Computed example of a mutant assay.
Amino acid sequence: MNTKAFSIALLTVLIWGSSFAAIRVGLKGGYSAGHLILIRYLIASLLFAVYALLPGVKFRLPRKEDLLKILILGWIGISIYHIGVTFGERTVSAGTAGMLIGSGPIFTSLLAMFVLKERLGKWGWIGLIIGFVGIFIITLGSSGDSFKISKEAFFILVAAFATSVMFVYQKSLYSRYTSMELTAYFTWAGTLPFFIFFPGIFHDIQHATLEASFSAIYIGIFPTAIGYVTWAIALAAGKASSVSSMLYLEPIVAIVVAWFWIHEWPNTISIIGGIIAISGVVVVNLKGRERAAVSENTPSSTI
């Protein structure tokens, strides 16, 4: 990986990793989960609309035959994902949420076997087993000392699975659209269901803390919009597989940022589970696949 690709990919991972703490700040500062999601995606949708209308930007509209697929993938990969993550973080710590989402490629690999007919070798199966053991331990640790899978941890697991579905099924669209175009389409499609949270939004805006409002603006601009732009630049500047390996750092960034910003640290059980889960992801992606990775040109996690 050259210096430019490494630097931009690292910046992207730092931006995406910081979003988990920012969500917690927004939730603790007076925003409901639904209102936080809606504000975030109204900002991102507006930014992508401005980009699409800029003079000199060649931004194509989706083909009619692709509209339904784009809508469904946007609802799954954006709407369900962000509802799962944001509602999950009402009780699950930012670092724990980051580790659960960071293990998402385990679901992607499993789906790729059935949908894209990718084959996993012996090490691939070992990696999957290790990954799912780690995920199970993280979810147990997320409930503190109660050793049960909490409802909020389940929400985040659903989010990880939802984004994996989008990564697998969007692959065919990359032969017809650029990553920026697809990201904009998915953002606009995924924003539509969030309008069910509109009632009462102005009350939250008026009564939320200043830090919470800045956090809502931050996640709308940086992780949701700018992060995808810098990621596309990094992928264009370097080898996709090498750039994608930087995503292994995202759960670590989530933990460290949460520690410095909101003084929050996952419990020991969750950290152990996170180490095991990410180890499984590494084994699958580096040693387990007999064909090219599913998300070679797309992020293996999203924020």
Rank of each mutant, 00 (worst) to 15 (best):
K28P: 00
S295D: 12
T86I: 06
I276A: 13
P199M: 08
M180L: 10
A189Q: 03
S45K: 11
V294R: 10
G288M: 04
K69N: 07
A258D: 09
Q170I: 15
A44W: 04
L46Q: 05
M180G: 02
A225N: 08
A277W: 04
G74H: 03
F132H: 05
K117V: 03
L71D: 12
I78P: 00
L47P: 15
H35V: 03
A254S: 14
S32D: 12
I233N: 05
A94H: 09
R40P: 14
K4S: 06
A162F: 08
E211W: 07
F198A: 14
F198D: 07
L140V: 04
S19W: 08
G98C: 11
V256M: 03
E250P: 11
K28F: 07
W125R: 04
Y185I: 13
T183L: 09
F260I: 09
I276F: 07
F197N: 15
P223N: 06
F114Q: 06
F132I: 01
V283T: 15
I276P: 15
S142W: 03
G104E: 00
G26S: 07
A216N: 04
R90D: 01
F194K: 13
I138Y: 09
F222D: 08
M180Q: 03
A44G: 06
A232P: 08
T139H: 06
A44E: 06
T108Q: 08
G29H: 00
G74M: 01
F161P: 00
L116R: 01
I83K: 04
S244Q: 07
G88S: 08
F161K: 02
G144L: 01
I37K: 05
R60T: 11
G26I: 04
F6Q: 00
K151A: 04
S45C: 07
I275H: 12
A292C: 07
L10R: 00
F186W: 11
T91K: 02
G134P: 02
H263R: 15
A225H: 10
